[in-house]
Amino acid sequence: MYGQETDPDYPTKLAEFEARIARGEKIEPGDWMPERYRKQLVRMISQHAHSEVVGMLPEGAWITRAPNLRRKQVLLAKVQDEAGHGQYLYHAAETLGATREEMLQALLTGQAKYSSIFNYPTVTWSDMGAIGWLVDGAAIMNQTMLAQCSYGPYSRAMVRICAEEGFHKKQGQEMIIQYAQGTPEQKAMAQDSINRFWWPTLMMFGPHDSASTNSDELTRWGIKTKSNDQLRQEFVNELVPLLHALGLEVPDPDLRYDEESGNWISGEINWNEFWQVVKGNGPMNAARLQARQEAHDNGRWVREALAAYAERDV
């Protein structure tokens, strides 16, 4: 069911497969698919799962420091959701023959990638607002696109995740709105969070289309239906007017409105910084992996106890 290019029937089967996708049909576990489609999906889905899991860390660090009980409940619920998102996605990758152990191992040994945004530190409380509004907001744009993707299990996981992400984005936006209208100190705190998270959020969408290697195939196979630059532009267009309305600044001196296209045009992204973070040299890369490793090690006795319990006589 995973088609190899050496198979003499491969071209015929590939044509049928691509026709199915063009008709908007979903590919389900058990259906024929090119090995390369399977590989690309495992890579994308597992990276995505790791991002959800590592993404718990920057916010988890603030649960005990939430300013009131409601904010604490909300943050706790959000972090718990991210754990769930990781699980939905590992499940989707498992339907393609990947195992959880393999994927977890790849994360812990640093072989697997996850979203570079989580390698930035969270230094003030309003970073929770900026993450919810900007980071989860950017993730929603990507995930709304992936909810349409041709692989059934991935698409369903994305629909479920998007439904939950709406809450993540709105609780963050609510916070920034409140602080922007609060005391001068609160407003300055919110501005500082936006200043630090704006550019890393734009980087989340990935390299420019001109520098993106996988795009053609992913588009043809109905996995990605919008390009990195397209999604990034949609995000900028949505956020800039809202931030301005709140009296907050976008930390981009070159930002300008283009009358003709109706787009807000950003200045150039610091791609050197992006690649440094991707390569593991971001401010928090080492700390994030260490925290994951510790959590894994500290959970070992629980896994062992449950495995022993499973072997009991019933």
Binding site: R70, Q73, A77, E164, F167, K169, K170, Q173, E174
Partner: peptide
Amino acid sequence: LYRLPNQY
């Protein structure tokens, strides 16, 4: 209910 987007 705070988990639901329509609460915001």
